[in-house]
Simulated assay, not measured.
Amino acid sequence: MTAVSAILAVPQASAAVGGVTGFATQNGGTTGGAGGQTVRATTGTAIHAALCSRASSSTPIIIQVEGTINHGNTSKVSGASCNTADGLIELKDISNVTILGVGGGAVFDQLGIHIRNSRNIIIQNVTVRNVKKSGSPTSNGGDAIGMEDNVRNVWVDHVTLEASGGESEGFDGLFDMKNNTQYVTLSYSILRNSGRGGLIGSSESDRSNGFVTFHHNKYENIDSRTPLLRGGIAHIYNNHYVNLHESGINSRAGAKAKVDNNYFKDSKDVLGTFYTSEAGYWQVSGNTFDNVTWSARSSDHNPAGPNPQSNTTVSIPYSYRLDGANCVPGVISQTAGANKGLQVSDGNCTPQ
């Protein structure tokens, strides 16, 4: 008997502020632009102009985006309440902002979103695709969404992040956090067709990041880094991983990952410490490993399988409900990604 999880619909035209989950609920919570003015933008320049039109850099604002945002329509705008740049969406030195895809959808085409020295940001219901660090055009160091330099409280929800290859084709990470980025949740999103899913920490010494939740996301056709975690704590639950070619969740340099009720399929070395001798740790429960292969251990390659066991404990400070791993593929196929109506699982699915 297969359990069926009910689906709850959230109106697409408004930000689901009450739906924030995971570590983004901590440290005072994440509300984005709730309570502020709602404006419409169909170009990147209009997004920057909306930020610059605020009374201050912390005045709440909800920016509804529709259409294709690209290099041709994204320019720097100046003002006392913003710090923007050409060639990317720059959320720098600001707070209390929601960017929400509406209508026929919002696509950031070859144009990344950069969050720097900012807090209380929500990005919801958008697609970011084919952002390059080499070749032409380039944007955001090749990251679809990148966060760095004292970032706090970011909720990224129901987005689709995709590339068309790996580093040799000019792409970098889909979802990167560096240099003191904390209290982040990525939920109900699709990350696909990339060499690198994303990282937390730019090097073994960059251990100031963490408190990140990944839930109800689909990682598909990714080489590695789903995510790469250097130091810090991550809670990784109810995700669907398909066709991870080299490695998956890479906990290293003292990091701790709580890995619950995920579904791994047709993949290799989906959990462990890889490409370093600096160990990371994991607590595992309820995961399904469907046609997962494991390579042999060596000094800098420590896969958790073939029978993954916990080697740490991780305390989670917020409440959450786990879908059973057996129904994760079905739930995520209905809910994850942009333009799905912001649907979520009610958490009633249990293992058969």
Rank of each mutant, 00 (worst) to 15 (best):
S251C: 05
Y263T: 03
G29E: 07
N287L: 01
G72D: 15
S224K: 15
Q343M: 11
G231E: 05
V242G: 00
S298G: 13
V4T: 14
L322M: 09
I233T: 15
R252I: 01
S224Q: 14
L174R: 06
T185R: 06
F108Q: 01
D149I: 10
A50P: 04
T181W: 03
G87N: 14
I200G: 05
K265H: 10
P308V: 02
H240Y: 15
T312G: 08
R54N: 12
G104I: 05
G173F: 08
F108R: 02
Y320G: 01
R297A: 14
N73S: 08
F175C: 02
I115M: 09
N262V: 04
G67C: 10
K258P: 00
N348V: 07
V328M: 04
G197I: 10
N180R: 11
A253C: 13
G330S: 12
I94H: 00
T21E: 15
A255R: 05
I145C: 06
R116S: 13
V331H: 01
E90Q: 14
H114M: 11
A336I: 03
Y241E: 01
I61H: 07
V314D: 03
W155D: 13
S56F: 03
S299N: 13
L100K: 13
G198W: 11
S81Q: 06
F289K: 06
R129V: 07
K132E: 07
Q182F: 00
Y263L: 02
A253H: 07
R225D: 15
R152T: 12
G248S: 03
R152D: 11
A85K: 12
G324W: 07
L244K: 01
Y318D: 08
G280A: 03
A253E: 08
R119W: 07
N179D: 13
S168R: 10
G35R: 12
N262E: 02
K258L: 10
E278G: 04
D149K: 14
L91N: 02
G201C: 06
D93W: 00
E278K: 14
K133E: 12
T42C: 01
T213F: 10
T276A: 05
N262M: 02
P306M: 04
V4R: 12
N217Q: 10
H301R: 10
Q64E: 15
D157T: 15
K178W: 08
S299F: 13
A13R: 08
Y318S: 06
S187P: 03
L244P: 00
I94F: 00
G280N: 06
H215A: 01
S194N: 15
Q124L: 02
Q182R: 15
I233A: 00
D269L: 07
E148F: 11
V292N: 09
K268L: 13
H301I: 00
G112I: 02
S95N: 08
N217S: 12
A46R: 10
L8M: 07
D323Y: 11
N83G: 02
T2S: 13
L322N: 14
P137C: 09
A16P: 01
I63P: 09
G87F: 04
I69K: 11
A6Q: 13
R192Q: 15
N262K: 03
V4E: 08
A338D: 14
C82Q: 07
G198I: 10
F108K: 02
S136L: 08
G248W: 06
A106V: 04
